[in-house]
Nucleic acid binder design. Structure first.
Length: 551
RNA sequence: GUCCCCGUAGCUCAGUAGGAUAGAGCGCGAGAUUCCUAAUCUCGAGGUCGGAGGUUCGAAUCCUCCCGGGGACGCCA
């Protein structure tokens, strides 16, 4: 709907004044009386043309109005109102094929990647990961609907010290099972080890499978073996949780694999060739400060091992060479300071600046009985995503994770989300769908009219009350919302619009009955409900939540 | 100490590249069911948009300073 205005507006402005100002607004005005959309373009033109905004707005408005669109100049603003004919024609398109209507294919589809979750395989997923998972998943779904080719990737940090500590922690617990003490091991474990209950479980599993054979083994060898064993197990667990959460990946890339394939060495050589690498105190440094980072960073330690950063440069260079035209990374907010560094490395490698977009996903704080539940992987005291899913269900978790912009912290009140009441927005929205399905069942039973298979399009004509038109608009508006998500990578906009749509629907439902004497009115309202149903269903598919028949 | 994010109704937050009279949900108060699901609806109270300057036709939004909250600053990942 918005792009419809935009096209016409720009054409006319260009015709009248020879240019279109860059940063003009076209948005839904706060005040309903100001129409469906409004623009400030006349103010911007006024500056350039040295004329009164009022006059310019008037000029444009006069040229713009036609059978479909009413444009009105008011104190320098131009207000647009869609005429009923246009709204009804658009609504027919929606009824015929919601997918086609809501997601117009982009002209130039891109080969894209969304990299998300990428949690270290050192423990179960926590709720913060869950938030990233939903945001990434929904983003990927939207990009796909608009015609982009999207690969969802999970980067596995299975190299380096953290997974070494994982192996060490399992070994410590394993020794414990046999009453074996190792002071050096104990010292490291108590300082940095993973203490969650799941480590003990892994140790027990090892005992069951391999008995006491690891007691004889060299300690480092045993840690190596257990690291391998534990990351594999935990990764399986992560995959299972994600699957239960409705999140799937096309591709899993291992950090260790990058090292083994020599990609890390290769990219460092490339950086060296470009003269961005130097040696100091026995370590190799990357000159990230030349590209806006605060200081230079180590890529190879003095002991000869590579840093996580080195692996990450290689990973992204590899992504680039795999042919992705645009990459979106979803990172936990604790990686905020890391962005500059990585961007610097990409610049150094000659990769275009807008190739990579990093979106940050902030913390989720869990509240239970009014108390914050503290989370720490080290001490093992945390609510896992698995537990949360079991407690409140997939639909509620996914929806709530999308009710705020991902870059602000989210408070998740378990007790509130468990409530099946209006306090809980997901039920409010799903209830609208269930109510419509209920009406359809009833109409079929009483009158033998099947809303799912009948051609209802002709009855749109009969809809003419203010509230009919408002509801139609709310459905059509979702199209603009999806396009907004495509531009801003902010899937949370969808939940807001859905709550508004549901609100208008519930209002309508309480004021107008479908099953009335006048058949024409009945059929027209059935048509309206069909459109709302399809709009909701399409949105639920994108959000990955269910569209219940009854509640 | 340096850098980043945030401060909007009692609470949790929207406010989409500076726009028109400041938005929603929850909570609170009052009401609605002979009729397709009351998990709903209707009405109401509630605000110096953290503070002070500045930029301009116009500021919650941009700039400077201050106050308050959170995060990041490893040869960890």
């Amino acid at each position: 709907m918005k792009s419809l205005i935009r096209q016409r507006l720009e054409a006319i402005v260009k015709e009248l004044y020879g240019f279109v100002p860059e940063a003009y607004n076209l948005e839904v005005p706060r005040e309903k009386a100001h129409g469906d959309y409004a623009t400030n373009i006349a103010f911007l033109l006024a500056k350039n043309l040295k004329r009164k905004p009022d006059d310019i707005a008037q000029e444009i408005a006069n040229k713009l109005s036609d059978a479909y669109l009413q444009a009105q100049a008011l104190r320098g603003f131009i207000n647009f109102k869609f005429k009923e004919e246009l709204l009804k024609e658009e609504f027919v398109k929606l009824l015929e094929n919601p997918q086609l209507y809501f997601f117009e294919k982009v002209k130039e589809p891109l080969y894209m990647m969304v990299e998300f979750v990428s949690a270290n395989p050192t423990g179960p997923l926590h709720v913060g990961h869950g938030r990233g998972a939903v945001v990434g998943d929904v983003l990927a779904r939207i990009l796909e609907r608009f015609g982009h080719k999207v690969v969802r990737e999970y980067y596995i940090n299975d190299a380096g010290y953290q997974v070494y500590l994982l192996g060490l922690s399992v070994l410590y617990r394993y020794y414990e099972l046999y009453g074996k003490e190792d002071l050096q091991l104990k010292e490291v474990f108590e300082r940095e080890g993973y203490r969650g209950e799941y480590i003990k479980e892994l140790a027990r599993e090892v005992k069951e499978l391999y008995g006491s054979s690891l007691l004889e083994k060299d300690k480092e060898e045993a840690i190596d073996f257990l690291r391998e064993f534990a990351t594999k197990k935990l990764l399986e667990e992560i995959k299972a949780t994600l699957q239960e959460f409705g999140v799937f990946f096309d591709s899993w890339v291992s950090e260790k694999g990058l090292h083994q394939e020599g990609l890390v060495e290769e990219v460092l050589k490339e950086l060296e060739r470009r003269c961005y690498i130097y040696e100091q105190e026995g370590a190799l440094w990357f000159k990230s400060s030349t590209f806006g980072d605060d200081k230079d960073r180590v890529v190879r330690r003095s002991d000869g091992t590579y840093t996580y950063f080195a692996g990450d440069i290689a990973y992204h260079y590899h992504k680039y060479r795999r042919g992705f035209q645009k990459v979106i990374n979803l990172w936990g907010s604790d990686h905020h300071g890391y962005e500059k560094r990585l961007m610097a490395s990409l610049k150094a490698l000659g990769i275009p600046e807008d190739w990579l977009v990093v979106e940050f996903v902030q913390m989720v704080k869990i509240f239970k009985e009014g108390q914050e539940v503290r989370m720490s992987k080290r001490t093992g005291d945390f609510v896992s995503l698995q537990e949360l899913l079991q407690e409140v269900g997939k639909d509620a978790v996914r929806f709530v994770f999308l009710t705020k912009t991902s870059d602000t912290p989210l408070d998740f009140d378990i007790d509130l989300v468990k409530k099946k009441s209006s306090e809980n927005p997901v039920f409010y929205v799903q209830y609208a769908h269930a109510r419509i399905r209920g009406v359809f069942r009833e109409v079929k039973e009483r009158y033998g009219i099947d809303a799912d298979s009948s051609d209802l399009r002709p009855y749109i004509r009969e809809l003419d009350s203010q509230e009919d038109i408002e509801l139609i608009k709310k459905c059509l508006f979702l199209k603009d919302v999806y396009e907004g998500v495509l531009d801003s990578f902010s899937p949370h906009l969808i939940t807001y619009s859905l709550i508004e749509l549901a609100k208008d629907f519930h209002h309508y439902y309480n004021h107008h009955r479908v099953m009335v004497e006048d058949k024409k009115v009945m059929l027209s309202r059935l048509t309206l409900f069909k459109g709302v149903e399809l709009t909701l269903k399409t949105a639920f598919e994108i959000l990955g939540i269910s569209a219940p028949e009854r509640m």
